[in-house]
Amino acid sequence: MRTLYFDCFSGISGDMVIGALIDAGADPVQMEEELKKLNMDEEYNLSWGKVVKNGITSTKFDVILTSKSDQTHEHSHSHEHEHSDGHSHSHEHEHSHGHEQSLGHEHNHSHVPHTHHGSRTYKQIVEAINEANFNESVANMSLAIFKKIGEAEGHIHGLPLEKVHFHEVGAVDSIIDIIGAAILIDQLGIESVQSSAIPTGSGHIHIDHGIYPVPAPATLEILKGVPIASNDIRSELATPTGAAIAAVLAGNFGSLPSMTVESIGYGAGSKTFENHPNVLRVIIGETQ
């Protein structure tokens, strides 16, 4: 059985998942074409390229919002994306330092309040997926992941699923990260997904409701029933999107299963740590 294993030794986020899958051999150009079915492509540009994280060559994936998307959201990421347009090795250190300063691609997206047209309701996202004519596997994976996030947000804020209207669910980059990951997993012919326990990090983060402990409330709610790995890194390692991808898709959480390894990919996160690379490793191979 063709199996994908998420090795989350430095956490997991949506952009890390896509970067790792591209690094493992998935075709980002085909993904980009498929995503056009959402009729949102005027709102963003996609960027991917090689970076080096603490000695590990990995792939960094970014969703860069355009002027047709919301201006506030774009502005909050201008620092991070100023080096993200190239695909060459010459940018690798600029990438690392730029991302180190910016607190993280998905981190900012997840926690900057958006009340303007850049955010979408859970219901709008479901309609967009259903109308896009993705194949059944991609649609089912995407809908299940969004439902997981929507239910977590609804539970925390005391709202029914249909009324959930939050940036965590609605930001353009989260939509691209989740549906893009589903497209690449389908493209790679993955039949089962497994994952390590999820390290969430520690410390505190600023979200629109104030200062909260790590993991953020939505992330912790999403990870109910999922093994969480202890970790003393004072940073947010698992984002709501990354947590939901693992929680929904992984049928088993534990150590690397017995497998014949076919490909390995490293997806770069947005942070830089002193003692270990901020990357997600994916391992694809045949299990019995």
Rank of each mutant, 00 (worst) to 15 (best):
R2H: 06
L4D: 06
F9L: 10
V17T: 15
L21E: 02
D23A: 08
P28Y: 01
E42T: 14
E43K: 15
N45E: 15
S47T: 14
T57G: 03
I64M: 14
T66M: 03
S67T: 07
K68S: 11
T72A: 10
E80Y: 08
S96L: 14
S96C: 09
S102D: 12
N108T: 11
H111V: 12
V112R: 14
P113D: 07
G118R: 02
K123D: 09
A128H: 03
N130D: 15
N135A: 07
S137D: 11
N140F: 00
M141E: 00
G150N: 00
L159Y: 07
L159T: 14
L159A: 14
H165G: 03
V169P: 05
G170P: 09
G170E: 11
V172L: 12
I179Y: 00
I179P: 01
A181C: 08
I183P: 02
L188S: 06
E191T: 04
V193D: 00
V193E: 03
A197V: 08
I198S: 05
S202E: 09
S202T: 15
H206R: 15
H206E: 15
H209F: 00
Y212T: 13
E221F: 09
E221K: 15
I222N: 11
P227S: 09
E236S: 04
P240C: 03
A243Y: 01
A246F: 03
G254Y: 06
G254T: 09
S255M: 03
G265C: 04
G265Q: 06
N275R: 11
L280R: 08
I284F: 06
G285E: 12
E286K: 14
T287Q: 10
Q288V: 13
